[in-house]
């Protein structure tokens, strides 16, 4: 005789003993949790607009950081400037920050003491000739394509959580981009400086600096100035307007979507007690009044 499936209901006489544990219980509990999280999500209220905007802005900042790689590369490759002064400046800035943050963030600073700095520097010095020659034989066009795709992968791999676990995918991709681009440079010094600056700007700085609007403003100004210098003010206006659109309009749209159209993560709309409609319908009927 087949038993009816166990239901999580009180006051219902079922064929199962009182202490029966359904094997599907854990799955159901997980979906319940997920649904609870979803219902309590901070993205679902208009009052959280600023929070959402802030997170969007942080994403934008990281993209800005990435673009700095290309800016520095253009500086060295296209304008054929000597990278050494820039390197020294950036290094000085970073080490000052490091010293001043010694008491604030002991966890991170402990990781980056003098010994490791020296090791990394010398290792990079040794390996730069190798890095330089790694993809020398490929044509320039394929290098640009390769670096584009690697950058895309890098951005998608960036994680912005507070407790950064040592997930190294982003660093690897960063290094891959740098390696691909570095094969176009002509001398070892240039490669070394390029590598050094990129690592400092993308790996160390985000960990050291507390994001504040002032610093963001400064970095934005620098980047846009350089872009204007390289590409002309048309591009700057274009990018600036895209950015404003992004930062002002998009959060509203995001919240609206979260409230009305957010897809349930599990496709379990078949529970007749839990929800009446499937996941692709709006939760509250949208009436065009």
């Amino acid at each position: 005789m087949e038993k009816k499936p166990w239901k999580r209901l009180l006051w219902l006489k079922q064929d199962y003993p009182d202490n029966y544990t359904d094997p599907n219980f854990i799955k159901k509990a997980e979906t319940f949790h997920k649904r609870l999280n979803f219902l309590n999500s901070p993205y679902k209220h208009e009052s959280n607009y600023f929070k959402v905007r802030y997170e969007f802005f942080q994403f934008y900042q990281s993209i800005l950081n990435v673009s700095s790689i290309f800016l520095i590369f253009a500086y060295i490759y296209y304008y054929k400037q000597d990278p050494l002064p820039l390197t020294i400046v950036v290094t000085v800035v970073v080490s000052c920050l490091l010293m001043s943050k010694k008491h604030d963030n002991p966890l991170f600073v402990r990781l980056l003491n003098l010994k490791s700095v020296i090791i990394i520097t010398f290792a990079m010095l040794t390996l730069t000739p190798v890095l330089k020659s790694l993809s020398k034989t490929t044509a320039s066009d394929s290098i640009w394509t390769l670096s584009f795709w690697l950058t895309l992968m890098y951005i998608s791999a960036l994680s912005n959580t507070k407790d950064k676990k040592s997930s190294n995918v982003s660093t690897n991709l960063l290094l891959a981009v740098v390696t691909a681009l570095a094969s176009r440079l002509s001398s070892t010094t240039e490669v070394f400086c390029f590598l050094y600056i990129c690592i400092q700007v993308n790996v160390l700085l985000p960990n050291l600096i507390v994001p504040s609007y002032l610093l963001a403003l400064i970095s934005n100004i620098i980047v846009y100035a350089v872009i204007t210098q390289i590409l002309g003010w048309h591009y700057t206006i274009l990018i600036l307007s895209t950015f404003l659109l992004y930062i002002i309009v998009l959060p509203h749209w995001f919240i609206y979507w979260q409230i009305n159209y957010r897809m349930l993560e599990d496709g379990d709309g078949r529970d007749e007690k839990d929800c009446l409609i499937t996941s692709w319908d709006a939760k509250r009927p949208v009436l065009n009044c």
């Binding site: 990781l111 980056l112 490791s116 700095v117 090791i119 990394i120 290792a123 990079m124 390996l127 190798v130 890095l131 790694l134 993809s135 040592s166 190294n168 660093t171 690897n172 290094l175 891959a176 390696t179 690592i199 790996v203």
Partner: peptide, 18 residues
């Protein structure tokens, strides 16, 4: 891992991959 181990390991990994 410590950060210098990460960096060094990543560097070597990229070189070997290429």
């Amino acid at each position: 891992f410590e950060i210098d181990q990460l960096l060094l390991g990543t560097l070597l990994f990229i070189i070997l991959v290429f």
